[in-house]
Design a protein around this nucleic acid. Sequence first.
DNA 1: GTCTATATACAGATAGAC
DNA 2: GTCTATCTGTATATAGAC
Lengths: 198, 198
Amino acid sequence: MASGMEHSRPAHDAVGTKERIQQVALELFVLHGYEKTSLREIADRLGITKAALYYHYASKQELLKSITQPLIDEFEVLVASAPDRDTLLRSYVDVLSRHQAVFQLVANDHASLAAAELVERSVKLRRDIVRQLAGPRPRPVDYVLASAAFGAIAQGFAVARRVEPQADPAPPGSAGYPEGEELTELLVATALRVLEQG
Amino acid sequence: MASGMEHSRPAHDAVGTKERIQQVALELFVLHGYEKTSLREIADRLGITKAALYYHYASKQELLKSITQPLIDEFEVLVASAPDRDTLLRSYVDVLSRHQAVFQLVANDHASLAAAELVERSVKLRRDIVRQLAGPRPRPVDYVLASAAFGAIAQGFAVARRVEPQADPAPPGSAGYPEGEELTELLVATALRVLEQG
DNA sequence: GTCTATATACAGATAGAC
DNA sequence: GTCTATCTGTATATAGAC
């Protein structure tokens, strides 16, 4: 409390063990799913034992929660700020980029969402986001279009970032997918086109 | 071989036990995920024992395969017929409608796709469909848009059919979501708009 | 902070009676 | 076609030494 180093890592460990566990666990969860991934597998990959994992995380579920929390937290902050439609879409792509792997996990493995006790929060999130997108006094069709817009962004993003399972190395006879600002603009423009179809 | 009833069910059972097992299993797989659902749970819900399940299916995996096969088969037939873009999209929505629950399973639980050994086939399917959508000599951006179009259909459909986990009963102050032909037209039109954005 | 050893639970699957 | 009983494997999790 007095040295000014209270929050630093043990000097001999560049990246904390806790963080390394999260990285490896996330990788395996995405690859094989949360339920199918065992703590033994995670421990082996790290060169430690199962028991050691329990020193850092109280349970497999707590490990999962620590991994998924940041994404859902950030989404909730974003939605609470209630930005205009354009900013919301752009920020959505931005969050997707920065939490790519975690998004991939919860999007493709609903069992992990349930295990992390995030189903309620994520349902509420999606509902709030769709509401902000659909605008004031939305018709039912506006809800469908708002969801379609989100699906378009997520899927387009997944392909462009080759985030899909066993994605192709590259499309034949082409340079490469758009990325960065270019990709963001493309996806946002696509979403807007979908929304304005009503 | 001679009575003319060779392929009929035992007379005392309106719907065959095999089919009832599939129905219950699918329901639970969608709800809790394939890995998390135990054979005991399925058997209990049916009022039989685990051992009885093994009379009808050689393994949990075989049960899963028998459930997922029809969807992937139908998709492959559709793609092999190589219809025009409009017909392809319309048929896609049609397949989605008729195999709603199975689609929901494989879309939200990649672990089940893997367990059913359908990853390769479904990756190839998606690639072929996207190619047919992207048209001749597609640029990378066309691939992204084609995938976005699919994402839009799948997500729009999910909301309209209230297929999402814990979906809302109905949007506030509205009659209801589009359905049937109306829904198909909406989703196909949306997909086309996305594709023509390039 | 990591280890060995172990407790406990439940999964998928099989044998054989009825 | 369904049952009881059981085998075998592996999972999460804990106790206690180092």
